Amino acid sequence: RAISFSNNSCYLPPLRCPAVAHFEPHDGSPECYLIHGGRTPNNELSSSLYMLSIDSRGCNRKVTFRCLEKELVGDVPSARYGHTLSVIHSRGKTACVLFGGRSYMPPSERTTENWNSVVDCPPQVFLIDLEFGCSSAHTLPELTDGQSFHVALAREDCVYFLGGHILSSDCRPPRLIRLRVELLLGSPVITCTVLQEGLSITSAITTPVGYHEYIVFGGYQSETQKRMECTYIGLDDVGVHMEPREPPQWTSEISHSRTWFGGSLGKGNAMIAVPSEGNPTPPDAYHFYQVSFQKEQDGEAPTQGCSQESTDFEDSAPLEDSEELYFGREPHELEFSSDGEGDTYNEEDEEDESQTGYW
């Protein structure tokens, strides 16, 4: 169904591979999603930071969003895609950590042959103060290579970067990077530790199954090979703990597809999509699946499942590299209803075009 935005919203362009962070309600601040960068449909790169929140909820599951662009000052991150954005808390303060990504080759280095070539962004860490919009860049000696399409998990004042692809050497090093950020008065202090105990993975899906506990699955372990395994990751005061988990019973469509993508639905649930195949192959048609993971309870084995939800999305726009944003709702509230149950007409749901607009 169409999404409506409040009349004080800015335009949110379609973006591929932006950095997305979930900002939970904190010290009176409402729940929102932070969206930075990404690739536009005409292959331009964005350097904007958007804040997407719920403006109001209506009947029949209709939701009105508000999107605001946050202006940054200082060391503003360049336009990029394939990077990560994380929210950290330190000494009663909150900040965002931006790292990685790719951008176009600098104009001074472009030639006719490599005009549209992309390179890894310099391995700088950006700290963004959301309250004042101040951004600062930090160069750390431990970070010698740029990287992209990695996983970022945050707990309190620490961010863990897992996997990723280094374009200059065309490798996926199985390393784990830990950043600790202390938001002191004056200048922040950042310490970096590089561990060789990570995963060789890119473009993975992460879904929470508990308090700072996650299941990481999907993505790719090489240019031509999907990663079919699942990994449990827990963050605590000691550090990070990783354990392999039994994957769901993947369907044949998932097992044989060359590509897949998706996102978290919260509380151990995720949605994945694979391109539909046929003769002829239908354009922009996908098989959608909901994957569910449950945390291990009192010695019981954790459970997981993969069920096909719907394939009837012929009228939808191309979805590859799209982002799934979950706003504090139960997963069953997001299910697609094909029989129209609960979708009866309600006059109060009619949009006042002076208040909202469709994008």
Rank of each mutant, 00 (worst) to 15 (best):
C158E: 15
S103W: 02
F126K: 01
C121H: 08
C158P: 08
R102D: 05
N114W: 06
Q124I: 01
L153S: 07
A152I: 05
S136Y: 01
V119T: 13
P123Y: 10
Q147Y: 13
I166W: 09
A154R: 03
F132D: 08
A152M: 06
G100Q: 07
R155V: 05
C121G: 07
V119K: 14
L143Q: 06
E142T: 07
V119R: 13
V125R: 00
G163R: 06
L98P: 01
V119H: 09
E131A: 12
Y104W: 09
L143W: 00
R102K: 15
N114K: 07
F161D: 05
L140E: 01
W115P: 07
Y160H: 09
Y160S: 09
E109I: 04
E109T: 09
F132E: 09
D170I: 11
A95V: 02
G163N: 07
G133H: 08
D157P: 05
S169H: 12
P122S: 10
R155C: 10
P107F: 10
S169Q: 14
Q124D: 06
S169V: 13
A137I: 00
L127Q: 02
S117Q: 13
H150D: 08
P123E: 01
V151D: 05
H150K: 13
S103E: 12
L143P: 02
G100V: 03
R102F: 10
S108N: 12
T112S: 15
D129S: 00
A95Y: 00
D120K: 04
E109N: 12
A137E: 06
T111Y: 04
C96S: 05
G164F: 03
I166L: 14
G163F: 07
S168K: 12
T144M: 11
G100E: 03
I128T: 01
F132M: 09
L140A: 02
V151E: 07
N114I: 03
E113H: 12
E142P: 03
A154E: 02
I128Y: 00
F132V: 08
D145N: 10
G164E: 03
L153C: 11
N114A: 06
E131T: 05
D157R: 08
G101K: 06
H138K: 00
S148I: 02
L140F: 02
R155P: 10
E142F: 01
P141S: 00
Q147T: 15
C96V: 06
L153N: 07
L167H: 14
S103M: 14
T139H: 09
D145Q: 14
P107N: 09
A137H: 02
S148M: 12
P122T: 09
V118Y: 08
V97L: 06
L98S: 08
G146N: 04
P123M: 07
L162I: 15
L130D: 08
C134N: 15
Y104S: 04
H138Y: 10
V151H: 04
I128Q: 00
S168P: 07
N114G: 06
Q147R: 15
T144N: 10
D120L: 04
L167A: 09
S135V: 01
G101C: 03
E113A: 14
L167E: 14
S136A: 12
S108P: 08
